[in-house]
């Protein structure tokens, strides 16, 4: 049995249990009703999107400074997870917004900043896929510029109105809603860590295989 099997099984079981056992028992929100339950997926994915982006940016900067391939692999894995969780947040968000605000999309500061961050992660992956040799440093530079860009996007879009609720609502949630929320955040975090580790491991194996091939040629 592969080493990752048990942790993967545990994360799967927890995530499958979330909907029927935990979210279904949470109370209905008074004004939005059933549709508010998207929140239990939307917010954890958005948080993991942010965490992945931060991991990618930090390890990219460390790669630029130190040149260690370990940081590069970590940045790559985190960029893929940024793309994945960003896509989840950007799909669940409009589904909820259609019911809550009456529109699919608003050019609100959080939405725009998330979309742009997600676009940078798309650009990062395209660069890694089609850039060929030498694109690893360039990708790290892109991640660095993407991080530096966030405050500017935030300020510039903030000039328009903001309707997205602030994160300050989270501590004020009643226990009946906060419990399921933190359960979902925990499972998403576990999923994130698991995927990140597996992805880094895959790249490590690839690098090892490459060096073995090279030593065989000599």
């Amino acid at each position: 049995m592969p080493k990752w099997f048990t942790p993967a099984a545990v994360v799967c079981a927890l995530m499958f249990a979330a909907s029927p056992l935990v979210i279904a028992n949470a109370p209905y929100e008074s004004t939005m009703g059933l549709v508010q339950k998207i929140f239990y997926y939307h917010m954890p994915s958005a948080w993991m999107f942010l965490v992945a982006a931060i991991v990618c940016g930090v390890s990219s900067v460390r790669y630029l400074v130190s040149g260690s391939p370990r940081q590069d692999r970590l940045a790559w894995a985190a960029a893929e997870l940024t793309f994945l969780f960003g896509a989840l947040a950007l799909v669940t968000g409009p589904l909820w917004a259609r019911k809550a605000w009456g529109v699919w999309w608003q050019w609100d500061v959080r939405l725009t900043a998330s979309l742009m961050g997600w676009m940078v992660s798309c650009a990062y992956l395209l660069l890694r896929k089609y850039g060929g040799p030498g694109s690893d440093k360039l990708a790290a530079g892109l991640a660095l510029f993407g991080m530096a860009n966030v405050p500017f996007i935030y300020i510039s879009v903030n000039y328009w109105r903001t309707i997205h609720p602030a994160t300050s609502v989270v501590p004020t949630l009643p226990v009946s809603m906060g419990g399921p929320l933190w359960f979902c955040v925990t499972t998403f975090l576990l999923l994130f860590v698991l995927l990140l580790k597996m992805r880094v491991r895959l790249e490590e194996q690839r690098a090892r295989l490459d060096s073995l091939y090279l030593s065989l040629d000599e």
């Binding site: 742009m116 676009m119 940078v120 798309c122 650009a123 395209l126 660069l127 089609y130 850039g131 060929g132 030498g134 694109s135 440093k137 360039l138 530079g141 892109l142 510029f145 993407g146 860009n149 500017f152 996007i153 300020i155 510039s156 879009v157």
Partner: peptide
């Protein structure tokens, strides 16, 4: 900076706008 770095990269013509536009959104706004 991006154009200079992309010189040695494959498919640079396509990649330049792909990298440039998301980063320069604040300038455009």
């Amino acid at each position: 900076l991006f154009a200079a770095m992309l010189v040695r990269v494959r498919s640079r013509d396509v990649l330049l706008p792909v990298l440039l536009y998301p980063i320069t959104v604040p300038v455009i706004i």
